[in-house]
Simulated assay, not measured.
Amino acid sequence: MLSAMLPVSAPQPDESGLFFVAKPPSSRPPSRPSGTRGASGKGPRRLARPAGEGPRRSAKSGREAREDTRRERAPARAGERRPPRASGTSGASGPSGDKRRPPTDKRRDAKTAANAAQERRPVRPPRKISHGANLPRAVATPKKPGEPQRIAKLLARAGIASRRDVERMIADGRIARDGVLIDTPATLLTSLHGITVDGNPVKEPAPAKLFRFHKPAGTLTAARDPKGRPTIYDRLPADLPRLMPIGRLDYNTEGLLLLTTDGELKRQMELPSSSIERTYRARAFGEISQTQLEDLVEGIEIDGIRYGKIDANLERRTGRNQWIELTLTEGKNREVRRVLEHFGLEVSRLIRTSYGPFELADLPMGGVDQIRAHDLVAFRKSLGGGGGD
């Protein structure tokens, strides 16, 4: 009964005359046509390119392709020669192949030579920067005691004479070394051993000494004067060592004048880069206000000469006469007088009351005394240079 209800196709003969039974239709969907996607696809599949139109996709499996790529990238073993990579094959540079040109023997040899030269080049040690290399000359690192120095400098430090006077003495044939005359001031020495002046041996320089001197007005800050005017050395006691003035004071200027036995100390204190403060008191006739004096803090230019910062204060006034206190660091020639004369004032008296930490205080006119050694040592540690008016 059940078999009678199902449709059964009749047997059909094949080409050989035999009969076969037709199978019922399968529920499996028909296969896709070549080059198309299924019902859920997003469009037709791109057909394979014909031969000669570009690189074809490798027929190897993914694992085999990765092994080939790894083998190509690995460095060649000694004596191994690899076949050139075919153009169009996939390489490290992408699907279009490795476009980098392999280096020729000439380029390879040049690169190898350059690398070898780089390895042979000596390694330079890091450059040592001298702490005094970029500083002003006044505060540059001084030479060590054992280094050679010019003979004029050593004799000046020993208190024989100034550098210029030493040069003149050398030209006159007064200085010798081990009995042989020295003919040039550029002679370099490490010490004064064997040096004679006028046949007398020169001793090594003693520790520097510094003196205060209350210079009176009407004396010249010089060793000699062609006009015959009195100098500071005419007022100094005869039992003092040879002293050199630090800076200068005008012929009519009075007050504190520092004297030293050390030429190097003199030079350092005279240079403007030392920025040592000096204070003056001026008695001037005329009219001036505190506001005008305060403007000097910014400096002033007079007749093309630029004067730096001046701290000026009006102390007291009597009629048209006033006392003005001025503190400066440059100390150009006649600086205080020229600045006050620029305001129409007539300076009748000018006194220097201090130079750095050293003050005139109650030192009498024409008096002189020595700065204590420990005060000088403390001052030299913070030294920067200076000058005078």
Results as ranks from 00 to 15, higher is better:
residue 268 Q to Y: 06
residue 283 R to V: 14
residue 190 T to I: 13
residue 252 N to K: 04
residue 193 H to I: 14
residue 234 D to L: 07
residue 216 P to D: 01
residue 278 R to Q: 11
residue 275 S to W: 11
residue 238 A to G: 14
residue 212 R to I: 03
residue 223 A to W: 12
residue 257 L to G: 01
residue 209 K to P: 02
residue 191 S to V: 00
residue 193 H to V: 09
residue 207 P to W: 05
residue 234 D to W: 02
residue 263 G to R: 07
residue 278 R to V: 00
residue 208 A to Q: 01
residue 271 L to S: 13
residue 267 R to Q: 13
residue 251 Y to V: 10
residue 245 P to H: 15
residue 181 L to Y: 13
residue 201 P to M: 00
residue 232 I to N: 08
residue 207 P to K: 07
residue 287 E to G: 08
residue 267 R to E: 12
residue 248 R to N: 11
residue 184 T to V: 04
residue 247 G to M: 00
residue 256 L to A: 05
residue 251 Y to I: 14
residue 241 P to T: 03
residue 258 L to R: 02
residue 219 T to K: 08
residue 286 G to T: 00
residue 198 D to I: 00
residue 186 A to W: 07
residue 224 R to P: 00
residue 188 L to C: 07
residue 196 T to M: 12
residue 285 F to D: 15
residue 282 A to I: 05
residue 194 G to I: 10
residue 188 L to T: 09
residue 281 R to I: 11
residue 205 P to L: 05
residue 259 L to K: 07
residue 238 A to Q: 15
residue 251 Y to Q: 09
residue 209 K to T: 13
residue 184 T to L: 02
residue 255 G to N: 03
residue 283 R to S: 11
residue 219 T to R: 14
residue 255 G to S: 08
residue 207 P to A: 12
residue 283 R to F: 07
residue 246 I to W: 00
residue 214 H to E: 01
residue 266 K to I: 05
residue 251 Y to T: 05
residue 277 E to F: 05
residue 191 S to R: 06
residue 235 R to C: 09
residue 217 A to T: 05
residue 275 S to D: 14
residue 274 S to M: 08
residue 237 P to M: 02
residue 257 L to I: 10
residue 258 L to H: 02
residue 234 D to P: 09
residue 272 P to D: 02
residue 285 F to R: 13
residue 185 P to G: 05
residue 248 R to W: 10
residue 271 L to W: 01
residue 200 N to R: 14
residue 267 R to K: 08
residue 284 A to W: 01
residue 282 A to N: 02
residue 289 S to E: 14
residue 187 T to Y: 14
residue 249 L to F: 11
residue 231 T to Q: 11
residue 218 G to V: 06
residue 196 T to P: 01
residue 254 E to Q: 15
residue 245 P to E: 08
residue 278 R to D: 04
residue 227 K to C: 03
residue 266 K to C: 10
residue 245 P to I: 07
residue 192 L to Q: 03
residue 209 K to Y: 00
residue 189 L to W: 04
residue 198 D to T: 00
residue 260 T to F: 04
residue 286 G to Q: 03
residue 215 K to P: 02
residue 274 S to L: 12
residue 250 D to M: 13
residue 198 D to V: 02
residue 259 L to V: 01
residue 250 D to F: 12
residue 245 P to R: 03
residue 187 T to D: 09
residue 230 P to I: 11
residue 270 E to A: 07
residue 213 F to W: 03
residue 203 K to W: 06
residue 289 S to Y: 04
residue 276 I to S: 14
residue 231 T to D: 10
residue 229 R to A: 11
residue 278 R to A: 04
residue 246 I to D: 01
residue 263 G to F: 12
residue 227 K to G: 06
residue 197 V to M: 07
residue 257 L to K: 03
residue 261 T to K: 04
residue 201 P to D: 08
residue 205 P to E: 07
residue 203 K to I: 10
residue 211 F to L: 06
residue 206 A to N: 07
residue 213 F to M: 05
residue 280 Y to T: 08
residue 187 T to A: 15
residue 250 D to N: 10
residue 244 M to I: 13
residue 197 V to L: 15
residue 204 E to N: 12
residue 212 R to Y: 07
residue 223 A to K: 15
residue 233 Y to E: 12
residue 206 A to K: 11
residue 274 S to R: 11
residue 247 G to Q: 06
residue 219 T to G: 00
residue 191 S to I: 00
residue 230 P to G: 11
residue 253 T to A: 08
residue 232 I to A: 08
residue 247 G to T: 08
residue 214 H to Y: 06
residue 243 L to M: 06
residue 247 G to Y: 07
residue 195 I to T: 04
